[in-house]
Design a protein around this nucleic acid. Structure first.
Lengths: 345, 345
DNA sequence: GACGGTAAAGAAAACGATTTACAGGAGGAG
DNA sequence: CTCCTCCTGTAAATCGTTTTCTTTACCGTC
């Protein structure tokens, strides 16, 4: 917060006694410059505290080295983890990240996309909002820069995507509970309109079916993804005539609601009830026996996302054969802790 | 991810049958353009899907409409809340936000600052790392754009800052516990080298002193800010010969550790022990009687930060009288829930 | 009818970098 | 000695805007 105008490449050139072209070549390690002049140029740049003007550079070169990161919901701790990893990886690769939060609002999402277009970001990483994509796929499909979808896919949109294999995730949870001998199993699934919830439930159901266990449809609680919904669903389940011996909560908000109901009703975990949830959470340590969870590979997802996007950017969609959108699915993992236990005979 | 090169202002001008200057004036609502031509220009821009090239615009106009947001630790939920609010407010004011996470690493912080300088961000919002500022204040002081510090201040640095009044925060907690009649009170303070922790403790101590209560120095637990440190400190306090009747945890990681210890030792809250912490937390609902907390006014802090920075940007540090850095402190609030109760006689 | 004033539109000069195309000099071959 | 070829370094064009400065046209007034 001081100092006059910043030095330009001309002043560096003058101080070093060379032309601006030589300065540019030296700083970008492109073209041939003798060692002597390189020395002089670097010294001059250092002395003046020269920082190249990114706008001027991008205007001429056509690349901004900026990535747009458009997140559906920053408050979601899982997305936050993705944001953190993506920022770190992009930054390490020399890209800056413009962060946008759409807060599940399609209108904000659209405004942010327009802004990223104006900024001529070199690429866009998008966790799309849940709804409002019916007529708007064009907005993403027509993006003039490479784009990639994370965590959520959009049906009928020809764009790279990286997601968790949510069917496998459901199956993993199912197999664990079956291994422990549970038969009366409940699921708090969230909104049935949401693709991810459906996949997790499908995987869970088919996982049980493969072991010869049928999921009781009356023990599937459907509503939305809020903590309140999870709480209400859990209370209904606990009031059942034949109380389930295990519960699978398909999302962390739901799990939080479930835990609250359990605390209020003084249900003992895992003696009276086994519970399994999705994703590690900061407060997991609070839950006494430790939460058994199925985790999404967030770091791997971030890595795959960034590297896939960057190669699209550098390759410039050249080969006409390799041009199809990739749908990458990564595998979840089971982490067993104390909140699940063998069913008592 | 398609379409050829983006249309430029020249193509809009040609389609509308006017000069580029007229297009520019129309789109920026500056200068005089007849209604007829405005109509034609807007129609042409619309039809071509024209989006002005931000780099070209900034190069000429000198303003990027970009703010840098450099955060010491994205994983901290309190900072996350600030990030969320700052992004929303900036976006509403027409600014894009480049997000940088230094992860408490001074080196990353420095690299990010250099990047923001190169990008010619119009302003920088910085939550500085805890350490490593001894010799580096210059890096911030010499920033050529307006900058503002949030949450943490740096001694001897002439820069605007917005923080919580942490002395008041400590006092608020003290008065509440005194109102309830507690006398044997413990504090888990975190690192004594950290200014914020010291302020909170000072406020707490003087708040008690003003009521004629002396804080027992042996009940002040000092270490670092980790969950593990909070846990260890809590175990020591619970093992005390004369166990305290109330505990103040000055930070959310510490509170988490405290809660874990309490759960493990089966201490009943608030019957055996009253606890008070800092900041609302997503998992607060899990704690049975509800957490009594002193909250920092995060939304107000974000608002003040953004508006102060934006006015510095637009006013361009003109008036030589009003030029001094402002240190703004905002007031915390007490939220009483079930985790604190009157001391039993 | 000449003149001045005003408003609207356009021509052209920046902004600060990259990049292309060219110039100059050294060195070697014929 | 001349010609050709590298090899460095430079001049100048260019990217897409904004902005300044002219130009043009129109109108009312004397």
């Amino acid at each position: 917060m001081s100092g006059g105008p910043l030095p330009t490449i001309h002043e560096v050139a003058r101080l070093a006694g060379v032309s601006v072209a030589t300065v540019s070549k030296t700083l970008n390690r492109s073209g041939k410059v003798s060692a002597l002049l390189q020395e002089r140029v670097n010294a001059a740049a250092q002395k003046l505290g020269y920082a190249p003007h990114a706008s001027a550079r991008s205007l001429r070169s056509g690349a901004t080295r900026i990535l747009g990161l458009l997140v559906a919901d920053l408050a979601n701790p899982y997305f936050l983890k993705l944001v953190e990893s993506i920022e770190r990886l992009s930054s390490a690769a020399g890209y800056s990240v413009i962060l946008c939060n759409s807060a599940e609002d399609p209108e904000r999402e659209e405004r942010h996309l327009a802004m990223l277009l104006s900024q001529r970001a070199d690429g866009a990483i998008v966790i799309p909002t849940r709804r409002g994509w019916s007529g708007r796929q064009a907005a993403l499909a027509n993006l003039p820069m490479p784009g990639i979808l994370v965590d959520r896919r959009i049906e009928g949109l020809d764009l790279d995507s990286v997601t968790t294999d949510n069917v496998a995730l459901g199956r993993l949870a199912a197999e664990h509970l079956d291994d422990l001998g549970h038969r009366r199993i409940a699921v708090i699934m969230g909104s049935p309109e949401h693709q991810i919830a459906r996949h997790r439930l499908d995987g869970f159901r088919s996982g049980l079916a493969a072991r010869g266990v049928t999921l009781d449809e009356r023990l599937i609680e459907k509503d939305n993804f809020s903590e309140a919904a999870g709480h209400a669903a859990a209370l209904r389940l606990l009031a059942h005539a034949e109380r389930p011996t295990a519960v699978f909560a398909t999302n962390n908000h739901l799990a939080l609601g479930l835990l609250r109901a359990i605390t209020e009703r003084n249900v003992s975990i895992p003696d009276e009830l086994s519970i399994i949830a999705v994703d590690e959470l900061p407060w997991a340590g609070l839950v006494r026996p430790g939460m058994t969870v199925v985790t999404q590979p967030s770091e791997a997802i971030a890595e795959t996302t960034v590297s896939t996007l960057l190669s699209r950017i550098t390759e410039g969609r050249s080969g006409p054969g390799e041009d199809e959108a990739k749908s990458i699915q990564l595998q979840p993992a089971l982490v067993v802790r104390g909140s699940t236990a063998p069913m008592r005979k």
